[in-house]
Amino acid sequence: MSVIYLLISISIVVAISFFIAFVKAVKSGQYDDDYTPSVRMLFDDELTKNQSKNDNSN
C-alpha cells in the first residue's frame, strides 16, 4: 500500500470537513445578515471602556 493513498485520503477528508463546516455555517444563517454582526461585535468593547472610565472617576 503506497503512502499516496493515505495522503490523498487525508487531504480529501480534510477538504470534506471544511465543506461540512461551510454547509453548517450557511444552514445556521450566518450568511443571511452580513451587516449586524459587524456592529454587534464592537459593543462589548464600548461597554468595558465606559465602565473602566467610571471606575477611574470613582
Partner: peptide
C-alpha cells in the same frame, strides 16, 4: 430562506478545487 444557490456554489467549488 432560499440558500440553494450558496449550497450549490459550495459543492461546485469543493469539487472544482479538488
Amino acid at each position: 430562506v432560499d440558500r440553494d444557490l450558496i449550497y450549490k456554489l459550495g459543492v461546485a467549488f469543493f469539487c472544482f478545487g479538488n
